[in-house]
Amino acid sequence: MPHKSKQDEIIICRCEEVTLGEIREWIEKGYDTFDELKRVLRVGMGPCQGRGCRDLVLREISRISGMKISEIPPGRFRPPSKPVKLGVLAKGGDDE
C-alpha cells in the first residue's frame, strides 16, 4: 500500500501508542513473537503491561504467520504488574 490507510493507524497498544500498521510491518520482517515485538516497538511495555494489547498482537501474528495462537510464545511477565512510584518502593515494605 503506498499511503497509510486508516487501518494502519489503529492503535493496538493504548499505553505505548503502537499502531496496527507498525505491528504488521515488524511481523512481516520476521518478528513473530510477543517479546520480539516488545523489544522493537515497546508494545506491551507500558503501565498496563500488555493486558490490553497482548491478545490483539498474538492474533495478528497468528493471522500473518499462520501459526496457531497457542504456538506463539506469549511473552514474559515481570512484577510489578502495576506502576509503583519509586519513592514508595524506596520506603520499602512495612515494618509491622
Partner: peptide, 20 residues
C-alpha cells in the same frame, strides 16, 4: 493526552487494569 501522538484517552476498563 498521549505523549507521542497527542491523542485523547479517557475511561476504559474502570477496574484499574488498563491505564487509560
Amino acid at each position: 493526552e498521549t505523549p507521542v501522538r497527542k491523542q485523547p484517552r479517557g475511561f476504559f476498563c474502570a477496574i484499574g487494569k488498563c491505564s487509560s
